[in-house]
Every structure is written in C-alpha cells, then in structure tokens.
C-alpha cells in the first residue's frame, strides 16, 4: 500500500491476478465513501487510488484498505465464476425469465421457439386445491352474486316492496 495524501490510499495490483474489470468493480463499490481512480502502472500492473470523503484517520484508512482487498478478491472470483458457469447460468436465467412471460408476448417476440416446455412438468398441471364440496358451494355463491343486477345493494333498497315482504311474515315500516 502506498500513502499519497493524508486522506488517500493507493494500491498497485497485478493484472494477472486481479483483472482490470475486477479492479474497476471493486473501486466502484467504494464510491459512496471514497473518490476512486483506476489507472495503469506499467506493464501488467494497475494502480487504484481511494480518497476518503469523510475522515482520514489511521483507523479509517486501515479499515478501507482491508475492505478494499476483500472486495477486490470478491470481484475477481465473481468474474471467474461468472465466466466458468456462463452456459448453465444463461440457460437457467433465460428459462426462468421466459416462463414468466405471457404466451401472447412470447408469440410476438423474435425467437419465440425458445419457450419450449419442460417434458417432465408440462404434462403435470398443478392439482386443484379445493375439495369437491367446496367447489359446489363456491359455484352456488357465485351464481347468487352473478344473478344480482350488478350494482351493489347491501341494504336491499332496490328490492321491490312486494318481493321483500311477499310471505307476510315481516311487516313493513309504519
């Protein structure tokens, strides 16, 4: 580590171990707390400088240095993993995203044939969760709702007087 100004720390990084993309991503992750600069430092070497926006004491610089080194490692690994698993990752993510699209949107999209179905799953639709008794009850209740005029009338003000009191069991208001 090289100390440039009181508030700034700088690192030289070997590109063979930490590629430019990883160094940039690591430096970027600190832009909420520090001003970051990434530049070349000779053949196969990079220089990353971080200047803390607030506070520049030794503890803050030491913490920043430690965190940056961890972040650099994380980003380099992430890049490696991403590259190594590109095919499987692209397959999984594409399948998942396509499955969330309505059929109409897929039919209109170029390359719609990519939405092929899973041989094991397409033939096994989810079982209905209801029991038959409940289904009958719901059908009956919906028939009642649909038989209504459509307007909500919880107090029954739209029901004709004769119909409301047709059995004579109840008396109308005096």
């Amino acid at each position: 580590m090289e100390r440039t100004r009181a508030a700034e720390i700088a690192f030289e990084v070997e590109e063979r171990i930490y590629p430019l993309q990883a160094a940039q991503a690591a430096a970027y992750a600190f832009t909420d707390r520090a001003y970051a600069r990434v530049e070349t430092a000779g053949a196969g070497r990079l220089r990353v400088a971080l200047a803390l926006k607030n506070g520049a004491d030794a503890d803050a610089r030491a913490a920043l240095e430690g965190e940056f080194r961890n972040e650099l490692l994380h980003q380099a690994l992430r890049l490696k993993v991403s590259e190594a698993n590109r095919k499987i990752r692209e397959f999984i993510v594409t399948k998942a995203l396509i499955s969330a699209q309505p059929a109409a949107a897929l039919a209109a999209a170029p390359g719609a044939a990519a939405a092929d179905s899973c041989p094991d799953c397409a033939s096994a639709p989810a079982a209905p969760p209801m029991d038959p008794e409940l289904e009958k009850e719901i059908d009956r209740l919906l028939a009642v709702v649909e038989g209504e005029s459509g307007a909500s009338d919880p107090l029954g003000v739209a029901v004709p007087w004769e119909e409301k009191f047709k059995d004579g069991a109840k008396e109308g208001p005096s």
Binding site: H74, L77, R78, K80, V81, S82, N85, I88, R89, I92, V93, A96, L97, A100, Q101, P102, A105
Partner: peptide, 20 residues
C-alpha cells in the same frame, strides 16, 4: 413487468451458479 430490468438483474444475482 415480468421482463423489467429489475427482474432480470435479480434473476442473474440470485442464480447460485453466479455466486462465489
């Protein structure tokens, strides 16, 4: 909504084949 950039980003980030 289903194809929104936020959905795509979260799908990539939560794919364990992409996570060190």
């Amino acid at each position: 909504s289903a194809g929104h950039p936020a959905v795509r980003a979260l799908a990539v980030a939560s794919c364990l084949d992409n996570q060190p």
